[in-house]
Design a binder for these strands. Structure first.
Lengths: 210, 210
DNA sequence: TTTTGTATACCCCATACAGGGGGATTTTGA
DNA sequence: TCAAAATCCCCCTGTATGGGGTATACAAAA
């Protein structure tokens, strides 16, 4: 495989050593080409439309505009570009923020070069590369608490409440009486030690009961 | 690395060829041992407490008790056992159901043996192995629609509504008048073409506006 | 420059809903 | 068979909701 159209990459990373290191390593690899690298988002934004890379390696911890804030701005200019986040800290909020804003993958700088090259290839192939710990964080966010104090029926009802349904609609939909729904809700409030739907939803989500 | 304590595995899979194939391949690998394999969940459940495997390879498409329903039952017996789902169909609902119920990873049967062995190792190391397409589905579930018709403020308010907050609490919390909140909600309903908080939440979630 | 969109705020109205108090009965699973 | 879960019933008060219309200030786009 020689002289195929190379995968084009842009690096946005403030640490010069890392930036130059990645640039060198990627350019030294067959079929990969770093079009440009920037030390901050501001510079990158004015040049990206010209660069039109397939993949952007984006540091999270940047001066000025932070990496996460940059994601929607970049996606706006280049909707088809894949964004891979680079980070040293595996902060949970950052992970979810970056993903909701449109990042396609999430790597840690401690990942070795081979893994990062693989990730670039994988994202171009339509994948979603993540380092091991990030995958763990993501999967863990799905896991529900198996020790919920709520019964099956109570959980069902609380989920409906969290979907904005009124008690009477829940009753109709579950083919039970409004009074039954009220009873369940009373028990839910008792068990969660709350006095409103708002607090019940908050408590249940915090503890991953729903 | 020879004669370390092996990683113990149980396979639950109804296709005999696949079951025996995996059993053979895993046993042929250094430091891995298949304690038992079962063709259905019912048989597995009565023996698992004795087997006490570190990892279970669990097929989704099983006769009788389906793989997904089996997860909480297994987790109940063996809370520390890692469950890796095996599937042929990359069905989105199945993926999320399995993950919420406590599966630690998600592989497709088309993954080659090496990948499956790597996944077993990775999950024991505390990771969350996923095949490429599954990772893509998971990451995509986080992505929000960047073309929301709602303004920033409207989105904020709709998120509060989805958290169960009343209009007056939203007003207090956002330091704006109740009437302003009402105005925003009116506009949200107009834009989403709905007439209730319930439908607004549903519509917004369907389109990933929130 | 004029128009449009956004965020802000105010008024009125009728209905539905929420939360809390007290029960009771039946169904089900261990 | 016995406790937990799910079901249903009555009372009460205060608040929330959805829809009607109007208006202003400001920024951005046409």
């Amino acid at each position: 495989m020689e002289n195929k159209t190379p995968i084009t990459v842009v690096i946005i990373e403030d640490d010069e050593t890392i930036r130059n290191g990645f640039t060198y390593l990627i350019n030294a690899t067959q079929n990969y080409k770093v079009l440009n690298s920037y030390s901050n988002v501001e510079d990158a934004l004015v040049n990206l439309v010209h660069d039109k890379p397939q993949v952007i390696l984006l540091d999270i911890e940047l001066p000025g505009i932070k990496g996460i804030e940059a994601i929607p701005k970049i996606k706006n200019l280049l909707p088809k570009t894949y964004i891979l986040m680079l980070t040293v800290y595996e902060n949970e909020d950052n992970v979810f923020n970056a993903l909701t804003k449109g990042a396609s993958g999430y790597l840690t700088k401690s990942d070795n070069t081979e893994k990062i090259m693989d990730a670039i290839q994988e994202v171009v192939d339509g994948g979603a590369p993540m380092s091991m710990n990030i995958a763990k964080i993501v999967i863990k966010s799905f896991h529900k608490n198996q020790n919920s104090p709520l019964t099956k029926r109570e959980t069902e009802i609380l989920e409906q409440i969290a979907n904005g349904k009124s008690r009477s609609k829940i009753a109709k939909q579950m083919f039970i009486d409004l009074e039954t729904v009220k009873s369940h809700i009373k028990n839910i409030y008792l068990k969660l030690n709350v006095h409103s739907r708002e607090d019940a939803i908050k408590e249940a989500k915090n503890n991953k009961y729903i």
